[in-house]
Simulated assay, not measured.
Amino acid sequence: MIVSTRQESPLARLPDWYRSPLGQEVARLECACVQGLLNTIFGYHLVQIGATEVFRDVLAASRIRHRVLMPFESVLDSEGSRVIGSVQQLPFSSDSIDAVLLPHTLDFASDPQGVLGEVERILIPEGRVVIVGFNALSPWGARRLLWRSKGRMPWCGRFHRPGQVRDWLSVQGCDLECCEYRMFRPPLASLQGPRCGGFDLMGRRFWPILGGIYVMRAVKRVATVTPLRPRMAKASALLSGRAVRPTTRGTGHV
């Protein structure tokens, strides 16, 4: 199923940037990293918010077979109907999603902490969130400071420090499992390609936290509750749940 967001966002222009020479190199590195982090995640339902086309093959290779795409551009599904949602109020039941992929979603969200709060709400206990973002503490972050006023993609976004995102996740009840860095080359198209791979080799060895891109995975904590004395519950109360989990009929999509 494809869900489109209600509001206009600069993130809707990101797919065009991914088609540029610099964007293609970034996409290659990000997809390889994301695929590695998704390979160890199991479950029934995966939601991707933003930049859906670039990671299509990555999601297709995921062990989670039922996927919901939530791009920032208006999209019609195969039946021609439009389904609308908002990143500030995700159209999914609480505790119903096994994994969420946020490719640069926080970089262009007006309230990134609110987005993480919604992600935590829809994740099942021990569900995973994979976040891709531009690192503010890198040459990419420095270039953004010079180019953000020009309104160009991706410099019009708001890059964050990985440590800041980690703190937001902790506040929302998620623990960081791992964080990987990619793209140690300056953000110049002339310095991309296999011949410039030495930048990445040196960066991973000598200054790993200065990569232009970070990819992190976090897990939703399971709250520990002090056991109480069991009490008899009415049958009607057990059957009156209002939240409905996504179905898995038909084509294998949510």
Rank of each mutant, 00 (worst) to 15 (best):
D57A: 15
V58W: 09
V58S: 05
V58D: 07
L59T: 03
A60T: 10
A60C: 03
A61W: 03
A61I: 01
A61P: 02
S62Y: 02
S62K: 10
S62G: 07
R63T: 05
R63M: 05
R65C: 12
R65L: 14
H66P: 00
R67H: 06
V68L: 11
V68D: 06
L69P: 00
L69E: 11
M70W: 08
P71F: 01
F72P: 01
F72C: 05
E73A: 06
S74F: 02
V75T: 14
L76H: 09
L76G: 03
D77N: 15
D77V: 06
D77C: 08
S78C: 09
S78I: 11
E79H: 14
E79Q: 15
E79M: 13
G80S: 08
G80K: 13
G80W: 15
G80I: 12
S81E: 09
S81W: 10
R82H: 09
R82Q: 10
R82L: 15
I84V: 12
I84P: 01
I84Q: 03
G85V: 05
S86W: 09
Q88N: 14
Q88P: 02
Q89R: 15
Q89S: 15
L90H: 06
L90Y: 14
L90W: 04
P91A: 00
P91F: 00
F92S: 06
S93H: 01
S94H: 04
S94K: 13
S94D: 11
D95W: 00
S96T: 01
S96R: 04
I97S: 01
D98H: 07
A99Q: 03
A99W: 01
A99R: 01
V100L: 09
V100D: 02
V100N: 08
L101I: 12
L101M: 08
L101T: 00
L102K: 08
L102M: 06
P103L: 08
P103V: 10
P103C: 07
H104R: 13
T105V: 04
L106Y: 03
L106N: 05
L106Q: 03
D107K: 00
F108S: 01
F108M: 02
F108P: 00
S110D: 07
S110P: 00
S110N: 04
D111A: 14
D111T: 15
P112F: 12
P112L: 13
Q113M: 15
Q113Y: 09
G114K: 12
G114M: 04
G114L: 03
G114N: 12
G114W: 01
V115R: 05
V115S: 08
V115H: 03
V115Y: 10
V115G: 01
G117M: 14
G117Q: 14
G117A: 15
G117H: 13
G117E: 10
E118M: 12
V119K: 07
V119N: 12
V119R: 08
E120M: 14
R121H: 10
R121S: 15
I122S: 06
I122R: 04
I122P: 13
L123S: 05
I124L: 14
I124T: 13
P125F: 02
P125G: 02
